[in-house]
Each structure stands twice: as C-alpha cells, then as structure tokens.
Design a protein around this nucleic acid. Structure first.
Lengths: 123, 123
DNA sequence: TGGTTATTTAGCTGATTGGTTAATTACAGA
DNA sequence: TCTGTAATTAACCAATCAGCTAAATAACCA
C-alpha cells in the first residue's frame, strides 16, 4: 500500500475526510472550522488531516495560531485517469465496436474453458 | 464506513484488488486465473474477491467447480461522478472558475441535487 | 508575565485488514 | 465410488485505523 494511488484511495475511503475535502472546495479553512460539523474530537480531525496531507490531497500553512488547510486536487486527477480506463464498462452509449472487442477478448482469455457464454447485449 | 462510496474507495485502495479489476477488464476469469500473477495464497485472493463483490465491483456465477468473476463497473461510475466535482481544481482553465463557483453555490442554496448539469468540459 | 485559544502529541482502546495454514465443501471424470 | 481440482471456511496473527482523554506546544492578547 505504498503506491500513490492506493494511498489516495485509502484517504478517500472515509466520509469524514471526503466531507473535509468538500468543505475545502469552497475555500481554505482552519482545523476548528473543519471540525465544526462533526461530533468527533479535535485530535481525530488532526489525524484525518494528516491522512489527507500524506496523500497530497491538502496542504497546510501557518497563520498565527491557525493552520489553514488548502485543497490540493492533483491526486484526484490521477484517480480520474484511473477510473476513466473503465468508462466503457458503464457507459450506456459506447460504440458497438468497443463492446465487440471486449467480448472477443473475454472469450479469448477464457479459452481453456470454452465457455461461450452468450452475453446479452442490451441496446 | 457503511456508505456505498466509502466501501468502493476502500475496495480500490489495494493494488492487488485493482490488478484483479484490470485483469477482469479483459474478460471474465476464474479465481485461480486471477490468483496466477500474485504470490499470495488462494484464501487471500478469495478475501479480496469478497471485498470486491461486497463493493459491487464484481459479480460471480458458477460453472462446474469454477466461480468465474465478472467486472461490474457501476460503482466506478459513482466514483467518476464524485471525482468530477473536483475537476476544476486541477484543470488548467481557471478563467471560468469564478462563474463556476457562483453556479455551484447557487445550486447548493437552491435545492438538493438537481442534476441539470450536463457539463461539457470545454477548453 | 500570565491567560486564552488553536492545534498537535502521547498513549490507550476496540475494530478492521491482509495475510497465513489446515480443514472442508463442491464438482468432474474415470 | 474414489480421486483430483477449485474454491471456501475456520482459526489465528500482526499491523493499521479511527476514535478517545489528557497533556503539551504554539501563538496571540492583556
């Protein structure tokens, strides 16, 4: 789990952290401001922020006794790129060529089994 | 961590599981076939598959003593939708940022989630 | 200097995770 | 029916995670 993408996905796999990112999307915020909506302790928020910072999803500066957080979306670009590879598997309007290629490859790779499963193709 | 999106992100936060999905993208495969490239035990693969199935990322059928796995990309659509909300933070074109912010805030304050935003990303 | 506010660190917990080996179920085929 | 293959379950382990309380830092204000 030392690869970048895994770290990013793990950081996103928590609703509190995603809520923090959502809040930061509308502007920088201090730790207390971020903690506001949640019923968890400040140290818990600090830990979440550390996870986000470690994943490169936020950056932090100093301003007096505050540590304002800033959204850093670069890792999300990587996520978008990864998930984009699978678009053809959920897209309703994929062209039929691509679907055909996928099916052919499927049978090819499952060759030893001779499955020949007639996949229903909804239009 | 009982929400759908968290479960999906958690399932994706493991390189072995993402490799399994990548393999399934080129066609259905049995458990042994999926286990092939990895140096971990079969029960470990079974567990990974259970995580993926629980997240709705794969489905399974029976064929003789095989349990072929199939990629189910619907949850990835949800992921793509989530991450898309942050596109403007990594996109190069910041000139329209102000307008976008205004629009988003307007929607936010107006109603819940009117999916009127068929937003075509311009350049 | 001392007091207040903001945030982090330290240390503890219980739950979850990713892995193991050994045993078990399910099925195909001779 | 017996044997081999595919896959799962059971039971365990070490590491990580998300939370807590209490204490420590850090910076401002008076």
């Amino acid at each position: 789990m030392n690869d970048h993408l895994s770290t990013t996905f793990a950081a996103l796999a928590d609703p509190t952290r995603r809520a923090i990112l959502a809040k930061l999307a509308s502007g920088d915020a201090s730790v207390s401001e971020l903690a506001g909506p949640f019923s968890i302790s400040m140290p818990a928020i600090t830990k979440h922020l550390k996870v986000l910072e470690n994943a490169g999803l936020i950056s932090r500066t100093r301003s007096a006794q505050f540590r304002p957080c800033k959204l850093e979306a670069a890792p999300l670009k990587e996520v978008a790129g990864w998930v984009e590879e699978y678009r053809r598997f959920w897209s309703e309007s994929f062209d039929r060529l691509e679907a055909y290629l996928a099916e052919v490859q499927a049978e090819e790779h499952a060759g030893k089994k001779k499955k020949k499963h007639k996949k229903k193709h909804k239009h």
